[in-house]
Write a protein that binds this DNA or RNA. Sequence first.
DNA 1: CTGAAAGCGCTTACAG
DNA 2: CTGAAAGCGCTTACAG
Lengths: 344, 344
Amino acid sequence: MTIKDIAKLSGYGVGTVSRVLNNHPDVSERARKKILAVVESQGFEPNSNARHLKMQAPSSIAVLVKGTQNMLFADILERIQAVLRDHEEDVYVAYLDEDADEVQYAVQLQKIRRPKGLIFLGGDLEHFRRSFYQITVPCVLLTNQAADLKFSLLSSFATDDTGACEAVADFLVEKGHRTIGVLGGNLSAEQISTLRLNGIKNALARHQIAFDSEIQHEPCRFSMACGYQAAMKLLRRMPNITALFALGDVIALGAMRALWDLGLRIPQDISIIGYDDIASAQFCYPRLTTIRQDTAALAEKGVQALLRRLSSSEAPVHEIIPFQLCERESVQPYANAESIVKKG
Amino acid sequence: MTIKDIAKLSGYGVGTVSRVLNNHPDVSERARKKILAVVESQGFEPNSNARHLKMQAPSSIAVLVKGTQNMLFADILERIQAVLRDHEEDVYVAYLDEDADEVQYAVQLQKIRRPKGLIFLGGDLEHFRRSFYQITVPCVLLTNQAADLKFSLLSSFATDDTGACEAVADFLVEKGHRTIGVLGGNLSAEQISTLRLNGIKNALARHQIAFDSEIQHEPCRFSMACGYQAAMKLLRRMPNITALFALGDVIALGAMRALWDLGLRIPQDISIIGYDDIASAQFCYPRLTTIRQDTAALAEKGVQALLRRLSSSEAPVHEIIPFQLCERESVQPYANAESIVKKG
DNA sequence: CTGAAAGCGCTTACAG
DNA sequence: CTGAAAGCGCTTACAG
């Protein structure tokens, strides 16, 4: 069943059929009705290969997701798909390893699938710096701030990582914590780790609290298993920690398990705070205090920006999305003898 | 950059270039080398629209995933993608709502994207019964058993749901539990719920233990929030339950939270057992005893079957994948006065 | 408002 | 082993 068949069946030429199919204006109401009826009755769908070949117009929007098990990205992706579906855009999703070079992958993808735009869910700025110049279609990076890179084809939307981490540190200090351990972040998320760590350091410095990242920070990948091991390692090295800050909720979840196994009660013996606010954060025991990233805003603004960029080639936009500190049950005020003395 | 440019640059005709690109045999080594060199130097990738249009050969394999937040499916999908990538197959992934009609969707998808094969991650047999006859390419249904449907284009690989649930019931009975509550399953997963519930009923009947599904079973969707509410509801209705069986780990996780909130200790006051063995099962507190579905086998066998079916049109295959009961910390033996009396 | 025709970039018999 | 040519199913100026 091709457009030719429809033409024959409807008594019109292929040109007219094509015009009807593409909602072009210059068609008589009569022709439109007749042709649509035939199309309907035959259940005809135009061949997208032929269409795209002719139109030279690339078809879909590709989404590159870094990490299959990342619940935060799953949330965002869900929204992205919904919004894109509303706009009748075709979406192509590819999952990459947490450590993969997403930009290299995008360069390949661009040649093979010729998407008209790309959305990166997570990314390493180093990769962008190195290879993004090879990309020729509008892109949006979600979850990382790319303003500094100044690529004319790259917009970005990210949570205020530094601010959020300052808020966490302030919050913990306010609760009386002075010896804080940090879990997570690694080479594959260079920038995120750095921004978040900086936020912590800034706030702590402001409170004149020392923080030696060499010993108080244990990097790890974003998974429960890694969070578990990292927590074990960190606590062995520094048993006097009173509060843990995990740079991702999955890390926090793994760490909480480690704390249980060490016989530490949360939050009586040690407090813990996460980052992301994935679904589990509300159902684990105790409920996890965490930083909520606004996944809906990230997804929607990202898609809108890409769509706008696609129709009118305006300048790239970079936006910081506000975070929210969700106070739940995993943090408790702390006051030991020493700090009481100091206060007095 | 088209094949014509490559032809010009290499001094050969487009036919020869095409043959080289497609690894056809009848090309001189000289031509192959020369052309490949030019292709390489130009970073040329053939236009897939043109290629597919001409070849009339459908391009990709589509995977339809029911439920975005389903961790079990995320695991399986990850393997599917890996295997398909090894076979250099192009994958198209679409996420559907847990309650969506995946077969209707597939019928549309088939017209629009013309995939050469489909993999369903989860599905409702009712939908298949109703609309699968409209599907014209080989398909594999994962996680549900479709042998009874006898569609010549549909293979299926599923865990032995009934057997697994019998095993769970046996296990709980053996531990002394007599009053068991069941959580999960709904209309959108008609068959799975039925099979699993049957397994439970069979085993319980064998042990001569009454089970009134009207009051001992609370259906719910596969999410923590729903598991939480379902557990609350069930326990209000039947406070004397000594063991809960959740038909999905996410449901179990939500239910565990409900138990905590009700002041019930796990497993001292009440035991709980899950289904799937997602990552969280090993990190929650207490660690969740659960049925492990063999996601790797499901994914690999499914893909292999599809690939085989694509190259040689053999008969569909239906296979039951073995399960495994992972005993962890959430179940404890139970013995109340009554049951001790009875035994004596 | 409509039809005939060119052409998008490829693959593949068909000759040679 | 290689080239010239037809044709995959569509869209879009170009005439009318």
